[in-house]
Design a protein around this nucleic acid. Sequence first.
DNA 1: AGCATGACCATTT
DNA 2: GAAATGGCCATGC
Length: 138
Amino acid sequence: MARTEEAAAWFSAVYRAVQQVPVGKVTTYGHIALLLDHPERARQVGVCLKHLPSAPDPDDRYSQLFNGGNVPWQRIINSKGAISPRGPGGAQRQADVLTEEGVEVEYDGMEYRIKLGTFGWFPKALPSEDEAGSGDHC
DNA sequence: AGCATGACCATTT
DNA sequence: GAAATGGCCATGC
């Protein structure tokens, strides 16, 4: 796990944020980072999920707080709207779980992509660019 | 102790 | 618009 207190706090914060993602929806690493007010640490979000214990371990107290059972790691995808490739079979398992939850995932031959419009993920939410007011196209 | 790697992303060539 | 660039920082060697 984390070596420093601060890192530990970061891990916990990430897990808590991920827990907010509702069933049937997905969001991005970047969005999680954004929610935590650290838009530059999208990568660390991935690190956290990588180290998320898949199941609670009697000897590891922390794993009883956060684990694959209560943290929907599978609902986090990359900004391209695809499941980030990782070790063999990993992405596929994630795609599998998502499908179970009702999220439409399709394999285009190279990667598992989330079918947009079927669930409502927010790629770069945080817009509020004030663009709305104008109303005209760029 | 460094150095390399990685479930990433936005920006700049 | 694809490819490189810089930043992030926990882990592993």
